[in-house]
Design a protein around this nucleic acid. Structure first.
Lengths: 319, 319
DNA sequence: TCATCAACTGGGCTTTTGCTCAATCGCGCT
DNA sequence: AGCGCGATTGAGCAAAAGCCCAGTTGATGA
């Protein structure tokens, strides 16, 4: 009985890992017991368990909103007039904000996605969003549509590494509408060219009707993602900052009051601009560097809901 | 930063446990690192983590349906014409069936419950169901209704230990309709008395309209739950067996072909009888002893969906 | 067919975790 | 205020998990 036996060579490994992990985590067995059970060596059992964890087969959730975080959520909602706030416990002093908020955000997205009635969901890009989507469980969302709010082609012509629509669709089976054009046009002419492309037009239209919009936030420090990823030059970054740039959502740059700048860069973004004071916008962001950008976005009502981590929430509230 | 600080004395402990568990499981930190982070001793950190696990704050899920189990699911569906089958990997040789299927069933119920449109869910009772419900996460189900299919008063007048409607409602905030009368009437007169009680009538009516019905299964061996829990005498059990009893759902006893017996006992059950060949009935059961009862129920089309464990699935299929 | 290589195996050692026990602390009761 | 009790703490030790290494196996390509 121990092992299923005649599996297909390739998948069997993964299966074994899952089974070992199941015995370990759910069954609460010791590794040598598992080894015995499955007819393998202790080391192999250990490796399987480790591998399952490694491969992200294991999903741990804490079923208890830590009081302090609940408190922060309430404060955020009141202070910034949010529709919803979710605060993940931080992972200590210098712990990674993204790592902390990722599981919480992933759970929230799963919840969002678990509805039966079809939804249209707009998605931004970025490291944070990507990490979150990677952490989602596979839920069945074949009846939903996910549409990219922003081009997915980097300046060098490569597909953006932080594109999430595809990954999202992978996990959920949702119909997906990437926006396969550059993030930014080089001039007004190119912009109208891109925008006139049928698939871009339909993606943009779909995005406008999205019932939920999920975005990250970009900061404007020296390592602003727009700059680091090569979308804008150092000079353009400086110019944006001179114009009062505080942060950026889907490439659209806004000032410290959360008002979109009237700046050349902003006029060349091919994607859609997240509307001010829409109920639909959910922002997932955290970390020291993004506080300024986040605060501005909140002030301007650019986002309706916020998922962040404890330290960031504290920073946002302490001022 | 370390600790939230001014919490209410009582809850702080639980919070700390959750936080330590968060750092440990989500943050992947070592216990001494956590101790440092939270400004406590290593042992305390260890204890907090252990306690969180103990208290069931930790919910581990394996995000990978083991191939062998998927296979069994397909076979079950085909063989018994089921609507859905879910098979949990067994926890080794003599491992507890309930323990194995509990997390899988809990996840399934959560999924079921995550719909936005209001549902009416009928619930049976029993050890298995209780364990499953205990393992559910708290999901928001305030718009749903849960109704008991069966009385919740034991023969000695105490409320049944295995009543699950309340617990279910606890976790979800759903409106709940327990059936606060004995499971069984002593005679026909008492039966019609109970059934005429307004709250029983409304519960029974509600139960009839339930869109989902979740039940366990009772076996008819010498330690049949109906007998062990004192609902029927040894003589009655013997008489039922003589009449061909193979198993029981919500107290209603059926034979090896899954047809309800025409027996005195069956006529005295106050609760509702799960209809044959309804699409709504989901059965959660597993374990050696229940195989016979399960097979009969499947044969008679008493249940439309089945959640069980690997060993039980194999046993059901091998005959 | 044989050499090469990479992935996998199991042994042994280190680190981490879990557990027990005696001491301490705090709290309520007299 | 003093006493007693239970809960909590930290030390030390045993068990478990994790890691590195050298050996092996199986696959690939010449």
């Amino acid at each position: 009985m121990a092992n299923g036996g005649g599996d297909d060579g390739d998948c069997a490994q993964r299966d074994d890992a899952a089974r070992a992990a199941w015995l370990y985590y759910v069954g609460g067995m010791r590794q040598d017991r598992i080894a015995e059970e499955m007819g393998i060596s202790r080391q192999r059992a250990q490796r399987l368990v480790a591998r399952a964890a490694q491969d992200g087969l294991i999903r741990v959730r804490i079923d208890h909103p830590i009081g302090a975080c609940l408190d922060l959520e309430r404060q955020l909602i009141r202070r910034f007039g949010l529709k919803l706030a979710r605060v993940a416990p931080s992972l200590g002093g210098q712990g990674d904000s993204i790592k902390a908020l990722t599981p919480v955000a992933a759970a929230e997205l799963e919840r969002l996605f678990a509805t039966k009635e079809p939804q249209i969901i707009g998605l931004g890009t970025g490291r944070t969003l990507r990490a979150v989507v990677e952490n989602m469980q596979s839920v069945d969302g074949r009846h939903h549509k996910v549409v990219s709010l922003i081009g997915n082609v980097a300046p060098d012509g490569s597909a953006s590494f932080y594109e999430v629509v595809m990954r999202f669709a992978d996990r959920t089976g949702a119909a997906h509408f990437p926006m396969s054009v550059p993030v930014m046009a080089r001039d007004a002419e190119e912009l109208s060219l891109y925008r006139s492309l049928p698939h871009v037009r339909s993606s943009r239209e779909l995005a406008q009707t999205a019932g939920k919009v999920i975005v990250g936030i970009g900061q404007m420090e020296d390592d602003a993602p727009l700059f680091v990823d090569g979308f804008i030059t150092a000079e353009e970054l400086a110019s944006l900052r001179a114009a009062g740039a505080a942060g950026e959502i889907c490439g659209h740059v806004y000032d410290a009051d959360g008002r979109y700048l009237d700046h050349g860069i902003n006029r060349l973004m091919v994607g859609v601009r997240v509307p001010e004071s829409s109920d639909a916008t959910i922002c997932i962001a955290g970390g020291d560097k993004k506080i300024k950008a986040l605060r501005a976005a909140l002030k301007g009502g650019l986002v309706a809901s916020l998922i962040t981590d404890e330290l960031s929430a504290q920073a946002l509230l302490s001022s």
